[in-house]
Amino acid sequence: MMRLAAEGLGGERGGETVFSGISFTLGEGEALTVTGPNGAGKSTLLRVICGLLPALEGKVQFFGGGEAFPDVASACHYLGHRNAMKAELGVEENLRFWQEFMGEAHLPPFEALEMVGLGDIGHLPFGYLSTGQRRRASIARLLVSYRPVWLLDEPTSGLDKASEAQFADLMGVHLEDGGMIVAATHLPLGLKGAQELRMGEAAG
């Protein structure tokens, strides 16, 4: 049984504490949405969870990952504001690279692109895509390699209504498969039964 647990987590930004004392536990198939005003530290929280930023206090642990996912960083997909795709390379080339680099191959790049509705433009350079299409291509990145935990930072920014619904389905499938999701968002993501963490009020 896999489990992601955070205990008394605190984070800072530019030497100033933006949040502290955040605890949560996610089991298989559970999701957490992180809401709050701009500057409340949602993005910082996600980066602290996966270890890109050092935690000011507290700790995050991942249990039950076995050999494939020994620690939190190795168990996480991180979808930040930036898409982590090279404009010079084709969409499919980008995905194939990340699949080979990240390991734990899940879906072939072509199928992952089909899932986000970009099946017919996999050959185009990433730089030619519109904002929404870029976002969808980087969502496809979540599908080419398997990670139990998805950390999503404003995942639906730039997406139209249809793509939002499609993405909600993808998240639903991931949760059904025993995955976990932590999403920072302003908009409802269509995650049923998700725990909610409001930031910026207690600290306020």
Binding site: D71, A73, S74, Y78, N83, M85, K86
Partner: peptide, 13 residues
């Protein structure tokens, strides 16, 4: 473009 974050995350692999 954010690739560096993913490379740092892949540190254990």
């Amino acid at each position: 473009d954010g690739s560096l974050d993913l490379m740092l995350l892949a540190d254990s692999r």
